[in-house]
Every structure is written in structure tokens, then in C-alpha cells.
Deep mutational scan, measured.
Amino acid sequence: PKCKGCFKAIVAGDQNVEYKGTVWHKDCFTCSNCKQVIGTGSFFPKGEDFYCVTCHETKF
């Protein structure tokens, strides 16, 4: 599969995040607002966007 963030291949051994059939490298899975890496931490999906806890609390 290819990462939705950088469009490069995800190979065995890469740390990745999967959500609803889409996959990202862990470092490519970032907050849509502040761009900080969410990685495998908590996040809030809103449509096609993903927000870290801090930005979600501030924005919504």
C-alpha cells in the first residue's frame, strides 16, 4: 500500500497508522490544523481531516 501523506510505499517494518482502509506512515499522520505528528496518539476525525486533541478542543 501507499501512504496517503507522502504517497510512498509502506513496506514491512514501517510503523504506520490505518484508519478506515487508508494507511499513513506514522510520521505522515498529522493534525490538519497545527501539522504536528499525531502518529499513534489520540485524534478526532472530521470529514477528510484529522485533529490532535489540543486543536480539536480549541477549534470545536
Results as ranks from 00 to 15, higher is better:
Pro1Gln: 13
Pro1Cys: 15
Pro1Arg: 14
Pro1Trp: 14
Pro1Val: 15
Pro1Tyr: 15
Pro1Lys: 15
Pro1Asp: 15
Lys2Arg: 15
Lys2Asn: 15
Lys2Gln: 12
Cys3Leu: 07
Cys3Asn: 01
Cys3Ser: 13
Cys3Glu: 15
Cys3His: 01
Cys3Ala: 04
Cys3Gln: 06
Cys3Met: 04
Lys4His: 15
Lys4Ala: 15
Lys4Ser: 14
Lys4Thr: 15
Lys4Met: 13
Lys4Leu: 14
Lys4Gly: 01
Gly5Arg: 04
Gly5Leu: 04
Gly5Glu: 11
Gly5Gln: 05
Gly5Thr: 03
Gly5Tyr: 09
Cys6Val: 00
Cys6Thr: 01
Cys6Lys: 00
Phe7Gly: 08
Phe7Trp: 13
Phe7His: 09
Phe7Leu: 09
Phe7Pro: 10
Phe7Ile: 11
Phe7Ala: 14
Phe7Lys: 10
Lys8Asn: 08
Lys8Glu: 04
Lys8His: 13
Lys8Phe: 04
Lys8Ile: 03
Ala9Lys: 04
Ala9Gly: 05
Ala9Ile: 03
Ala9Thr: 05
Ala9Met: 03
Ala9Cys: 01
Ala9Arg: 04
Ile10Trp: 04
Ile10Ser: 07
Ile10Phe: 02
Ile10Cys: 02
Ile10Leu: 14
Ile10Gly: 04
Ile10Ala: 10
Val11Cys: 05
Val11Glu: 09
Val11Thr: 06
Val11His: 07
Val11Pro: 12
Val11Gln: 14
Val11Leu: 12
Val11Ala: 14
Val11Gly: 11
Val11Ser: 10
Ala12Trp: 05
Ala12Phe: 05
Ala12Val: 11
Ala12Leu: 11
Ala12Lys: 14
Ala12Asn: 02
Gly13Phe: 03
Gly13Trp: 08
Gly13Arg: 10
Gly13Ile: 11
Gly13Met: 12
Gly13His: 04
Asp14Pro: 12
Asp14Tyr: 12
Asp14Ala: 09
Asp14Leu: 12
Asp14Glu: 13
Asp14Phe: 02
Asp14Asn: 05
Asp14Val: 03
Gln15Asn: 10
Gln15Tyr: 07
Asn16Asp: 10
Asn16Glu: 14
Asn16Leu: 04
Asn16Tyr: 02
Val17Tyr: 03
Val17Cys: 10
Val17Gly: 03
Val17Trp: 08
Val17Lys: 06
Glu18Thr: 12
Glu18Asn: 03
Glu18Pro: 15
Glu18Ser: 09
Glu18Leu: 04
Glu18Arg: 05
Tyr19Phe: 03
Tyr19Asn: 01
Tyr19Pro: 06
Tyr19Thr: 12
Tyr19Cys: 07
Tyr19Arg: 12
Lys20Ser: 11
Lys20Asn: 08
Lys20Thr: 09
Lys20Ala: 08
Lys20Gly: 13
Lys20Val: 06
Gly21Met: 06
Gly21Glu: 08
Gly21Pro: 02
Gly21Asn: 01
Gly21Ile: 07
Gly21Tyr: 03
Gly21Lys: 15
Gly21Ala: 10
Gly21Val: 07
Thr22Leu: 09
Thr22Phe: 01
Thr22Glu: 10
Thr22Gln: 09
Thr22Tyr: 07
Thr22Ser: 14
Thr22Ile: 03
Val23Gly: 11
Val23Gln: 07
Val23Ala: 11
Val23Leu: 13
Val23His: 13
Val23Trp: 12
Val23Arg: 09
Val23Cys: 06
Val23Met: 13
Val23Phe: 14
Val23Ile: 12
Trp24Met: 07
Trp24Gly: 01
Trp24Lys: 03
His25Phe: 01
His25Gly: 01
His25Trp: 00
His25Tyr: 01
His25Lys: 02
His25Arg: 00
Lys26Phe: 03
Lys26Met: 10
Lys26Asn: 02
Lys26Arg: 09
Lys26Ala: 07
Lys26Pro: 13
Asp27Asn: 06
Asp27Tyr: 12
Asp27Gln: 04
Asp27Thr: 12
Asp27Phe: 03
Cys28Asp: 02
Cys28Gly: 02
Cys28Thr: 01
Cys28Val: 00
Cys28Lys: 01
Cys28Ile: 01
Cys28Pro: 01
Cys28Tyr: 00
Cys28Glu: 02
Cys28Asn: 01
Cys28Trp: 00
Phe29Trp: 06
Phe29Met: 11
Thr30Cys: 15
Thr30Glu: 10
Thr30Ala: 12
Thr30Asn: 08
Thr30Tyr: 13
Thr30Gly: 12
Cys31Lys: 00
Cys31Arg: 00
Cys31Pro: 01
Cys31Phe: 00
Cys31Thr: 00
Cys31Trp: 01
Ser32Pro: 04
Ser32Asp: 07
Ser32Met: 08
Ser32Phe: 09
Ser32Asn: 05
Ser32Arg: 09
Asn33Trp: 11
Asn33Gly: 04
Asn33Arg: 01
Asn33Thr: 08
Cys34Asp: 00
Cys34Trp: 00
Cys34Met: 00
Cys34Thr: 00
Cys34Pro: 00
Cys34Gln: 01
Lys35Ser: 10
Lys35Met: 08
Lys35Leu: 10
Lys35Ala: 12
Lys35Trp: 08
Lys35Ile: 02
Gln36Ser: 12
Gln36Ala: 09
Gln36Thr: 15
Gln36Met: 04
Gln36Cys: 09
Gln36Pro: 02
Gln36Asn: 12
Val37Cys: 05
Val37Ala: 08
Val37Gln: 02
Ile38Pro: 03
Ile38His: 02
Ile38Thr: 03
Ile38Ser: 03
Ile38Gln: 03
Ile38Leu: 05
Ile38Lys: 02
Ile38Gly: 01
Ile38Trp: 04
Ile38Asp: 02
Ile38Tyr: 01
Gly39Glu: 05
Gly39His: 08
Gly39Leu: 05
Gly39Tyr: 06
Gly39Lys: 07
Gly39Asp: 10
Thr40Arg: 08
Thr40Gln: 09
Thr40Trp: 14
Thr40Lys: 12
Thr40Tyr: 03
Gly41Trp: 04
Gly41Ala: 12
Gly41Asp: 13
Gly41Tyr: 05
Gly41Met: 08
Ser42Thr: 14
Ser42Glu: 15
Ser42Gln: 10
Ser42Pro: 10
Phe43Gly: 08
Phe43Tyr: 06
Phe43Pro: 09
Phe43His: 04
Phe43Arg: 10
Phe43Val: 13
Phe43Ser: 14
Phe43Leu: 12
Phe43Asn: 08
Phe44Asn: 02
Phe44Ala: 11
Phe44Arg: 07
Phe44Tyr: 02
Phe44Val: 08
Phe44Met: 12
Phe44Gly: 04
Phe44Trp: 12
Phe44Cys: 09
Pro45Asp: 04
Pro45Cys: 04
Pro45Phe: 05
Pro45Lys: 05
Pro45Thr: 06
Lys46Cys: 06
Lys46Tyr: 14
Lys46Gln: 02
Lys46Ile: 05
Lys46Met: 15
Lys46Phe: 14
Gly47Ala: 14
Gly47His: 14
Gly47Tyr: 09
Gly47Leu: 08
Gly47Ile: 14
Gly47Lys: 09
Gly47Thr: 03
Gly47Trp: 04
Gly47Met: 04
Glu48His: 11
Glu48Cys: 05
Glu48Gln: 12
Glu48Trp: 06
Asp49Leu: 13
Asp49Lys: 15
Asp49Trp: 12
Asp49Ser: 11
Asp49Arg: 10
Asp49Gln: 13
Phe50Asp: 03
Phe50Arg: 08
Phe50Gln: 08
Phe50Leu: 07
Phe50Glu: 03
Phe50Asn: 12
Phe50Thr: 08
Phe50Met: 03
Phe50Lys: 06
Tyr51Met: 15
Tyr51Ala: 02
Tyr51Pro: 03
Cys52Met: 02
Cys52Glu: 04
Cys52Ala: 01
Cys52Arg: 01
Cys52Val: 00
Cys52Pro: 05
Cys52Thr: 01
Val53Gln: 11
Val53Thr: 11
Val53Gly: 13
Val53Asn: 00
Val53Glu: 08
Thr54Tyr: 03
Thr54Leu: 06
Thr54Gly: 09
Thr54Ser: 11
Thr54Ile: 08
Thr54Ala: 05
Cys55Val: 00
Cys55Leu: 00
Cys55Pro: 00
Cys55Glu: 02
Cys55Gln: 00
His56Tyr: 10
His56Arg: 11
His56Gly: 10
His56Leu: 04
His56Asp: 05
His56Trp: 11
His56Ser: 04
His56Phe: 03
Glu57Ile: 00
Glu57Phe: 03
Thr58Pro: 06
Thr58Gly: 13
Thr58Asp: 12
Thr58Cys: 14
Thr58Ile: 11
Lys59Tyr: 11
Lys59Thr: 11
Lys59Ser: 12
Phe60Arg: 07
Phe60Pro: 14
Phe60Gly: 12
Phe60His: 03
Phe60Cys: 14
Phe60Ser: 12
